[in-house]
């Protein structure tokens, strides 16, 4: 399996995402100005401050040439994972419901948080241990998940909330403690926590690996089919 990691000007966690992806498969960079996904089996839109986060987080990046290809890939059922700024970009692009607002505390927060895996039957969480908590860091200023109440109800009803901050761990005031959501088709997933920073026991935890391993499982099955 080969994962592509998008690199925008201002991406910061692209290198980390590449290293994490390389643990479960092959990984390569997708340049923001290209209109080519180079035949990858899955796409990661990484964290950082694409285009300086100027105007509004993710607002400018979503118009990058590569994003047109990512949108097409997603419509065709390809696996797309958005982490932090990548989540913001995917929301702006309309690939995921909702939006990310400034943290309730207004400040940047870098902290290890505990997450509850809500759904384990999806392409991104099928390798995660059911009922167990994941310890994964967050680091952002704009991570408060928001969607209108009706949309939140609908999202929860269809099993679109994959990760929630464990009680007492919501770092930003996210609606219903939502940390990560997927689209209706289940092939696009965005989350504020950084699983790519939880793949090495020395740097804090390996709890993020199961998300990448899930992608390998699913993409691998597609490849085998």
């Amino acid at each position: 399996m080969r994962l592509g990691v998008v690199r925008f000007p201002g991406s910061c966690d692209d290198g980390d995402a590449l290293r994490a992806a390389a643990i479960v498969g092959d990984a390569e960079v997708l340049w923001h100005g290209d209109r080519d996904l180079r035949g990858v089996d899955g796409v990661i839109v990484p964290g950082g401050f694409s285009y300086g986060d100027y105007l509004r987080v993710g607002a400018i990046a979503r118009f990058a040439p590569i994003m047109g290809e990512v949108e097409r890939f997603a419509r065709d059922g390809g696996l797309v994972l958005g982490i932090c700024n990548g989540f913001q970009v995917l929301c702006e692009a309309g690939l995921l419901p909702g939006a990310l607002l400034p943290n309730e505390g207004l400040r940047f927060v870098c902290r290890q948080v505990e997450l509850d895996v809500v759904e384990t039957s999806t392409a991104f969480t099928c390798d995660c241990p059911a009922g167990e908590r994941l310890s994964i860091p967050v680091k952002h200023t704009t991570g408060r998940y928001f969607a209108p109440e009706a949309q939140l109800d609908e999202l929860e009803a269809r099993g679109g909330v994959l990760l929630r901050y464990a009680p007492g761990h919501n770092p930003n005031g996210a609606a219903r403690s939502i940390a990560g959501v997927c689209n209706e088709a289940g092939n696009v997933f965005g989350l504020m926590p950084h699983p790519e920073h939880a793949v090495d026991p020395l740097t804090g935890s390996t709890d993020g690996l199961c998300l990448f391993a899930s992608m390998r499982k699913v993409a691998g099955a597609v490849l085998a089919a």
Binding site: C12, D13, G15, D16, R19, G47, R107, F108, V109, C110, R111, P137, K139, H194, E196, H197, D200, L202, T203, G204
Partner: peptide, 12 residues
């Protein structure tokens, strides 16, 4: 906590 202390995956 206001600083990203982990980006670049070196911070042990």
């Amino acid at each position: 906590e206001q600083y990203d202390s982990i980006v670049q995956s070196r911070t042990i």
